[in-house]
Write a protein that binds this DNA or RNA. Structure first.
Lengths: 218, 218
DNA sequence: ATTATCTATAGATCTATAGATAATGC
DNA sequence: ATTATCTATAGATCTATAGATAATGC
């Protein structure tokens, strides 16, 4: 993950420690260590001892900042989502002036997926291990990301740069774009042998825009 | 899973027990129990004791038929794949005579995904827990399934029912079809609130065929 | 005699906490 | 005095196996 100095998000995870600034720094240490371990060995095979050691703190102290191992996973998933969403939101802004907005947006998003491949894959694989309430939040984050694409597509439809489809079709296409980005993360072991990320982006953009499959004269 | 009486596939998992028929029956018991538990609680939170108990055998006996808990997971993943692939292969045959072959094939495949939702999701979530060699096999199974779609698309391209695209684009579209089926399984919690499976199939078919996104007059 | 099965547990963890110690700020 | 930190471990598992028993087939 980028070492962004994002202001602390609200996480609802209580800490025994009072100093909010310290909480922020320690939790970042913990997340940085944990994300590495989780990617390498998976959540269940990573021990709390390892997380503490890799964070440079004692096991005891770890439990002053979180109340369970699942807390750590939630912190990690939430931070990953925040970074993806922030990057995409920024890219949507930046790109919304040019021509071919949709293609540009797809490109930016897919590049984020490429850069954060391991992290996105981690969320896919370990969300199930979260306690109910947090799993639901992580899943809702996926919807939030998708909704960014929904808005963009609707904007384009209004300005005539995208077909005026029923709301439900637009929504589904937004989901498709999201998931085709994720596909690069969970089929990467295969796809990257045959496609560069730029090649992937190009072909998928054609697919999404219907350029490849629609018969020439209907 | 369907209680198919498929002949025993070769699995390379050794057993202390000699009678091949008995191995087949016991392993089916084990897989049926394990798949339920894994879906409910996940692989890591399921204990070998529980698998044995649910299978109606003792913990000791379990280890006469597999040599580790991971073996059970592999058996399960392999059986799930076999069933999906068999169903799809059968459907491709059955459907290849009619008109609109591609749409029919997508429909059949998506219906399998709907029916085996939990199982397919399980494979997604737990593949990482497998020992290297077996994980690779499970991943290659995903490619095998995709290749069924590649063949179909190439057949259609030859007969003029599908655009003659470069091999690489065809391959990628096959991956897309596979993954958009899987998307129904891992976003089901959201999608099924808004789309029936038939509605999903219809809209996704239009999307894949480029009917929704391609501008009317290019 | 051989094969299949069960019972009981060794051995190896791992999470989370209690209680002791060090650092900080009034 | 209060807050942050560490050390050491209680308590609770869980996997895999050793050794005893039951069933089977010559």
């Amino acid at each position: 993950m980028k070492n962004t100095d994002t202001p602390e998000r609200i996480t609802d995870i209580p800490s025994q420690v009072k100093d909010p600034d310290l909480i922020g720094r320690r939790r970042r240490q913990i997340m940085d260590a944990a994300v590495r371990l989780f990617i390498e060995k998976g959540f269940h095979k990573t021990t709390t001892r390892e997380i503490a050691r890799e964070s440079g703190i004692s096991t005891g102290l770890l439990y002053e900042y979180v109340s369970s191992k699942e807390d750590v996973l939630y912190l990690v998933c939430d931070a990953i989502h925040a970074e993806v969403e922030a990057t995409v939101a920024e890219a949507v802004q930046r790109v919304s002036e040019g021509s071919n907005v949709l293609a540009a947006m797809i490109r930016e998003y897919f590049l984020v997926c490429d850069r954060m491949s391991d992290h996105i894959l981690l969320v896919y694989q370990e969300t199930k291990a979260l306690p109910d309430q947090w799993r639901r939040r992580v899943l809702e984050n996926e919807v939030k990301l998708t909704n960014i694409f929904v808005s963009t597509l609707e904007g384009l439809a209004r300005s005539g740069d995208f077909p005026r489809l029923p709301r439900k079709s637009i929504e589904l296409i937004a989901h498709n774009i999201t998931v085709l980005g994720h596909m690069w993360t969970f089929r990467r072991w295969f796809l990257s042998r045959h496609y560069s990320i730029e090649d992937y982006i190009k072909r998928q953009t054609d697919f999404i825009l219907g350029k490849s499959t629609k018969k020439e004269t209907q």
